[in-house]
Design a protein around this nucleic acid. Structure first.
Lengths: 146, 146
DNA sequence: TGTATTTGCATAGCAAGCTATGTAATGATA
DNA sequence: TATCATTACATAGCTTGCTATGCAAATACA
């Protein structure tokens, strides 16, 4: 019985994720952002005022993970938390002006890291690669729920 | 300036890596193994007696990460560390009998998790997917060094 | 109305990745 | 030979993921 990691999609994907995360961290660092913070900001740039649970659900992360990341984002001046008007248990997450201003430069940095990844493939293959990744993501996600 | 995570290979790969890691953890848990430990065991099943640095280099991990993982593996009875005969600074990492016996069942568990991932794609596309992942991995890795 | 369940959040504690730093052994060199 | 640089490892401290718990607010229902 053998496990050949060079022929394991899971092992390869894990390696790529780690290498890509390092690239993205490097690209985002000059803005004072971490990768996890950028991911949360992507949601909030579309619409802030969401609750912590809505954010966690949208990103597929656990509530506790979200709570910790939001605490660091508040510490770093990226978000503020205000009591929810209709529900005393929850809070609305709002972007600071500073976080709003980061949208363009941070998106550029993230795209740059993505470009390094895509550069490994001829452009003719990139659409298919994205399609495959999307199908795998959808499949694993649905398997988790159902 | 927009960042669309559903069209970002990096974002998709990160999600897949997280979902796959959870699957693999679940499959390995009954054996008392974590994913990170399994990865180290894969190296040691091929040849044990390596030093910590050799293991870290082989897996592309930092020395400190390796040191911590090996400490947990020693705690869990998977490896023993013996002084290196030729170099008083380093230690050789040896598998325990128990770890040796885990090779077949652990490999099966890992392959099972990989199967769930591959199941998202028609078999005709799987070879190409592996090839793309290999090229991306190689490209990112070489970019790191050079 | 009063209790019981559910829901939203915080916190503790663990794993595994990272960087930075300290120590001891080795190796190179003046 | 004595000193300096390098190498192997350990440790501290950070992030970001996880599970498990606890608490308080909201909701359901007897």
């Amino acid at each position: 019985m053998m496990f050949d990691k060079s022929r394991s999609a899971g092992a390869l994907v894990s390696d790529i994720a780690r290498l890509h995360a390092a690239e993205q961290q490097r690209a985002l660092a000059p803005l004072g952002l971490s990768r996890a913070q950028f991911v949360v900001l992507c949601e909030l740039w579309l619409a802030d005022g969401m609750t912590q649970r809505e954010l966690a659900n949208g990103l597929g992360l656990e509530q506790a993970t979200m709570a910790n990341t939001l605490a660091r984002m508040q510490r770093d001046g990226l978000v503020t938390r205000k009591p929810h008007p209709d529900d005393g248990r929850s809070q609305q997450i709002w972007l600071t002006e500073w976080a709003r201003d980061l949208r363009d430069p941070a998106s550029r940095a993230a795209l740059e890291a993505d470009g390094l990844l895509a550069a490994a493939l001829p452009s003719a293959e990139r659409e298919l690669f994205l399609s495959m990744l999307s199908r795998v993501t959808a499949n694993l996600r649905s398997g988790k729920t159902g």
